[in-house]
Design a protein around this nucleic acid. Structure first.
Length: 882
RNA sequence: GGGCGAAUAGCUCAGUUGGGAGAGCAUCGGCCUUACAAGCCGAGGGUCACAGGUUCGAACCCUGUUUCGCCCACCA
């Protein structure tokens, strides 16, 4: 029997830990690859192993968990694959920092030892975020946890690389790339973050070699001057028509370089002539290609001037800039320096200014992969939600550039390419024993590793065992849903689309839900490097996981950033407590009750019919809201129902029955409805608040299985009851009318008053008399009567539908107060009437608006006008009494 | 330079085919009414950024403006 006493308020810590452990032990999260239930699969966006849970993760994983739990309860065979990403540069940086603290460096350790060291770090500290996800309640199938550098996933990476290479989609070559002088590696275009910086525009004279004057160029980067191999002007620019084809002398060096014409040069910008440094600027590189200019590199991998830098060799790039400017000034070459704001690229991992450099790198030719990836979205094979992101996706895909995939770091998937002294390049899945050309066994492997996102791109199928043909792939690929932030739409989503289609011949996911970013109070993205992070774990400690999760869901409106407010979290913490206490109340009143399910309809009272109707209507709402990823709407629907319908009204209405004041039959019926509703509400809430619902569910269902084995509530249309809802509206209206009078007239809520009702339709009156006990209890009445004839003297009055509700306050009634109150009510009604009158006297409205709209407005006007005359009559009587 | 989004109550935000403006928090007044003071009852509070347009009717659709945010882009 149910006889447990709950604590007075909900204390999350112990309960959360206990239940998570229980779920893991019972295998509740495990997907069954042999089950014939319909599959539903999600792969987690793998957090960096270096990471710790931030708000973005919390939101992302809460939404995934809501869907996973929802679908599981709906009877799907749910697979949620968890795992982490090796995060090449980020992880390497972490370990390098540790080495630096010990006054050593990776170069001193050597590659093998360094990589070993990173693995050790990963084994020790890499699991932090996984445990934090568990605190969040994430129902991942941990038995299938993956890491992007697991053996299986690494094999998948090599296989993909080889296939792309064999298909001519991977090539190696000398190109200008983004170089981070601190990480000492190439970066893809996406890994460069542009920021506006205040800089200068230096105007520098380049004298003509024939002594016929000079050209003045404008540059922001004078330190690259020694790498200039031309000066360009626009062919349309009449000012420089004669200069084209001449030569100029490079200042500080005297080297002769040609003046060329190229349409890229903007006539209106700067001086109209542009120095060309093909080795250190993306545009200049292209211009150089067009004009077959020499590519002269003047900088080394540290960002220092190299041997081509003459006197400046060995100097840091910024130091060099100062020196060159000084020397130009001294040599009379510097015309002027202007302030100039421009955007400068920075490394997304360490924020160092990017240096464009020529370097031999590996690239993926992505154009041919992008086509099918676009087509899949266009045709609806993959749906992006909210759909406005599709446009962004298409635009990027259409302008996609080759992807630089090699990185000059050690932590990651080493490129499966081997070189032989004979010049042969062998690309293979496994290390070749000998050169296939000359037979030499003296092969050296390419030093570079792959971009981290290369392995992430394979995640949806590599985690399921590809390239083997596994049951998992057969059952769970394509995955059902991907939940991610828009910040990695290109980095990750787009690339998964391309790779999935190429290697599986099928999209990686049916739907992609793009959620907002959780930002700080300035609207900035939260990140460790900015130091503006609010720690979700602190929030969880303070308010509990369920409250936190519910808050995130409630904030997760589509297409809008989230600025987390602690007030809201507190509010939802209170909501959790409300549910706890409603349950506590129920359990106190269920003693001796044995659950036989709902009684037959005939035994249900108006209150029961109403709340069951409301519940089923909310189930319908929540189901459709979750199906369309409107998490905030779903949260709001549940909140409103639980607090403002179930707790505020239903529980209050059934108290007398529970306190044995309405007979044993009624008590049992009420207990049954209460039990049913609580159980169903826990199930409805479980995806949002897994812990408290599981705990409470265990109290109310005796000896049953855990809540996760229960079915998510389904709409039972036979309970949808418009009649009951209409009658309840009336009853609540009367109760609110009396409460309003009390509140406004300074009568304490607990003081019992008399109520008289005058007028009203037959059906309204019978609804009231049948259910008068509810009104008596909730409005706290001492007595009640229907009256005919004259209105009572000295009574406060409220209009409810077509009735006048009087609360005689006799000696205590404050006439001035009642006069004020009535005037206020009248003013309110008049304002409403004015709007309606204006509408209804508009001929065009009457003619063109749909008939039902017109009719509705007419009815409302009638109601208001009748209410108004009643209020006015009452006001008149009050005034007479004064 | 291109694109996307936002502007609604003091604050944080909802508002899904155009049909009398909502929630939470905060504020004010009244309540320890035997689940909950993390609570209960009542109340006040908005020219829906601005200007036009479409429409019988606009927070919502169209045009323009202002402010803010984000993404992309090679203006030296």
């Amino acid at each position: 029997m149910l006889k447990k006493e709950l604590a007075k308020s909900y204390a999350p810590e112990e309960i959360e830990e206990r239940w998570y452990k229980e779920w893991i032990e019972s295998g509740a999260f495990r997907a069954d690859e042999n089950s014939d239930k319909p599959p539903y699969s999600i792969v987690i966006p793998p957090p960096n192993v270096t990471g710790s849970l931030h708000m973005g993760h919390a939101l992302n994983n809460t939404l995934q968990d809501i869907m996973a739990r929802y679908k599981r309860m709906q009877g799907y065979n749910v697979l949620w694959v968890p795992g982490t990403d090796h995060a090449g540069i980020a992880t390497q940086n972490v370990v390098e920092k540790q080495l630096a603290e010990n006054k050593t460096a990776r170069e001193e350790l050597g590659r093998e030892l360094f990589v070993k060291r990173v693995w050790e770090w990963k084994e020790e500290s890499g699991g932090v975020i996984v445990n934090q996800l568990k605190k969040l309640g994430a129902s991942c199938d941990w038995s299938r946890e993956r890491f992007t550098m697991d053996e299986g996933l690494s094999k998948a990476v090599r296989q993909v690389f080889v296939k792309l290479y064999d298909d001519g989609l991977i090539y190696k070559g000398d190109y200008i790339i983004n170089w981070c002088p601190r990480c000492k590696t190439a970066l893809s275009d996406l890994e460069v973050e542009h920021q506006d910086e205040k800089g200068h525009l230096y105007h520098i004279k380049y004298p003509f070699a024939d002594g016929s004057g000079e050209l003045t160029v404008a540059t922001t980067r004078p330190e690259t001057l020694l790498g200039d191999t031309a000066v360009a002007v626009n062919p349309e620019d009449e000012r420089f028509a004669k200069a084209i084809g001449k030569e100029v002398l490079l200042p500080l060096s005297g080297r002769k370089i040609p003046v060329i014409a190229d349409a890229h040069v903007d006539i209106k910008f700067g001086t109209g002539s542009l120095k060309i440094t093909p080795a250190h600027d993306f545009n200049d590189f292209e211009i150089g290609q067009r004009h077959k200019l020499e590519v002269l590199s003047v900088m080394d991998k540290d960002g220092r001037l190299n041997e081509n830098g003459g006197d400046y060799a060995g100097m840091d790039r910024y130091e060099c800039r100062k020196r060159i400017v000084a020397d130009l000034t001294e040599g009379g070459f510097l015309v002027k320096i202007e302030d100039h704001d421009h955007s400068v690229g920075h490394c997304y991992r360490c924020s160092t200014s990017i240096e464009p450099m020529i370097s031999k790198q590996w690239f993926v030719r992505v154009k041919s992969l992008a086509g099918p990836a676009m087509e899949a979205v266009r045709s609806g094979k993959t749906k992006i939600i909210p759909s406005q992101w599709e446009k962004t996706y298409f635009e990027w895909m259409e302008n996609i550039k080759d992807w630089c995939i090699s990185r000059q770091i050690w932590w990651g998937h080493q490129i499966p390419a081997w070189y032989c002294d004979c010049g042969e390049l062998i690309v293979a899945i496994d290390e070749p024993g000998a050169c296939r050309s000359c037979g030499s066994s003296d092969l050296s492997r390419d030093e570079d590793v792959l971009d981290t996102w290369f392995s992430s791109a394979l995640w949806p199928f590599s985690t399921m065992g590809w390239p083997d043909e596994t049951k998992e792939l057969e059952k769970f690929y394509p995955t059902s849903l991907l939940v991610t932030g828009f910040d990695i739409l290109f980095f990750w989503v787009a690339r998964m689309m391309m790779m999935g289609l190429k290697f599986m011949g099928e999209v990686p996911f049916r739907e992609v839900y793009i959620h907002a970013l959780v930002r700080d109070s300035q609207g900035q993205k939260m990140s460790k490097s900015r130091g503006n992070v609010i720690d979700p774990l602190v929030i969880i400690d303070e308010y509990g996981t369920d409250a936190f999760r519910f808050t995130l869901a409630a904030f997760a409106a589509q297409g809008r950033d989230i600025r987390l407010s602690e007030d809201r979290i507190e509010g939802y913490r209170n909501f959790v407590n409300k549910i706890w206490n409603a349950s506590r109340f129920a359990l106190m009143n269920l003693e001796g009750y044995s659950d036989d399910g709902l009684p037959v309809k005939a035994e249900l009272d108006i209150a029961d019919r109403w709340i069951l109707s409301r519940f089923n209507s909310v189930v319908a709402d929540v189901t459709s809201q979750l199906d369309s990823y409107r998490f905030n709407d779903a949260a709001a629907s549940i909140y409103r129902f639980v607090w403002h319908e179930f707790c505020d009204w239903y529980i209050e209405m059934i108290k007398p029955a529970l306190y044995d004041k309405e007979g044993p039959g009624r008590k049992k019926a009420v207990q049954a409805v209460l039990t049913h509703l609580l159980k169903s509400t826990y199930r409805l809430l479980h995806p949002f608040m897994p812990f408290v619902t599981e705990e409470l569910h265990g109290y109310i269902t005796v000896g049953a299985e855990g809540i996760m084995k229960c079915e998510f509530p389904k709409v039972d249309k036979t309970f949808l009851d418009k009649e009951a809802e209409g009658k309840m509206e009336l009853l609540m209206g009367v109760i609110k009318g009396v409460r309003n009078i009390k509140g406004e007239m300074g009568v304490p809520p607990s003081a019992e008053v008399e109520m008289q009702i005058r007028g009203g339709s037959k059906s309204a009156l019978s609804t009231i008399s049948e259910n008068i006990r509810y009104i008596k209890a909730l409005a706290r009445l001492s007595s009640f009567s229907f009256i005919d004839g004259a209105a009572p003297e000295g009574a406060a009055m409220a209009v409810v539908e077509d009735m006048e509700v009087y609360v005689p306050l006799k000696g205590t009634v404050d006439l001035d107060e009642e006069e004020r109150r009535l005037k206020k009510e009248i003013a309110k009604v008049e304002k409403d009437m004015e709007l309606l009158n204006r509408k209804l006297s508009n001929q065009d409205f009457l003619e063109r608006a749909p008939a039902d709209v017109v009719e509705k407005n007419r009815e409302k006007l009638d109601e208001f006008s009748s209410a108004k005359s009643k209020l006015e009559a009452s006001l008149e009587r009050i005034t007479c009494l004064k």
